[in-house]
Design a protein around this nucleic acid. Structure first.
Lengths: 151, 151
DNA sequence: TCTAATAGGATCATTTCAGTCCGATTAATC
DNA sequence: GATTAATCGGACTGAAATGATCCTATTAGA
């Protein structure tokens, strides 16, 4: 009942991209170093984000990642579900055939409600909002620019 | 991001107990057969439910399980968290030390909100309500009593 | 005492998770 | 065209969680 590491990394990645939306393309290593995750693993995650149309990737020398849409058009939910699949809180909703016993399906109405609420909350927040809030928080915290990284 | 099997079984178990609240003590095998789960596994689950004070167990011949409180005093959330632990949707809330980078903590406010909503929804439903809804649904579905099981 | 039940520790198979390795591919630059 | 710097993507691996099952111990009614 929790976000996977891959999902967490995906969020960090797109958040970083959103916070540096002015720049063209950002290298995988830079993102990984700045957001503290394994660069190789980020590669896997990024491929899924690209398939989902959230980021676009350029290969080859000087390659890297960038958001495929505007930050205000990307919901947190989309990022998470691109990696971990659509959010289901219990199996029965996901696999109705595993629930042919109707006996407990009153419970599932509750689960379905909970699920809708959750997806609604996560779907209602965009990267633009998150990035803006991050920047405000960052500015209040330290005096040097948060742009610097690894030399 | 989903309920474990053990959690699912726990719910089935207490729901069955709630639906037969008039009876004294119900044997593990009966519950397992009626609610379609492995009896041994139910044993494990039941121990946790007992530790959490949700059911009480009588050992020995003619032993079995019963609810430790009235069905209207047991929330669905309590049952789930007795088995799977307190619900956390992401690690960072659970282990704040794993999140010393404040960079992404704007996201965590969202997660925290989502988590509160989820716990609220699951905490607002009692076994009494679920059992009543089940019985209504059952009555409308079949004509024989749903009490019968394995001879 | 016998028997029917649960308790609970040990064990096990499977799946998921998290991550790494490495050759293939792509594209900019020399 | 060769070199180089990047990502792609499949294979692999170790660790942990999950979903059980087995077996002995214990409990308590008959």
């Amino acid at each position: 009942m929790r976000l996977t590491r891959a999902g967490e990394y995906a969020i960090r990645c797109v958040l970083y991209l959103a916070m540096h939306h002015d720049r063209e393309l950002i290298g995988r290593k830079e993102i990984a170093a700045a957001m503290d995750m394994p660069a190789q693993f980020l590669g896997k995650v990024a491929q899924q984000l690209a398939k989902a149309g959230i980021i676009s990737i350029r290969q080859g020398s000087q390659g890297g990642y960038e958001l495929a849409k505007r930050p205000q058009d990307i919901a947190l939910l989309a990022v998470i579900e691109a990696i971990d699949g659509e959010i289901f809180l219990n199996d029965c909703i996901h696999r109705p055939h595993s629930c042919d016993r109707q006996t407990i399906c009153s419970v599932h109405q509750i689960w379905d409600k909970a699920r809708r609420q959750l997806r609604n909350t996560l779907g209602g927040v965009t990267l633009a909002e998150l990035a803006a809030r991050e920047k405000r928080a960052c500015a209040g915290r330290s005096r040097e620019q948060p742009h610097a990284l690894q030399g």
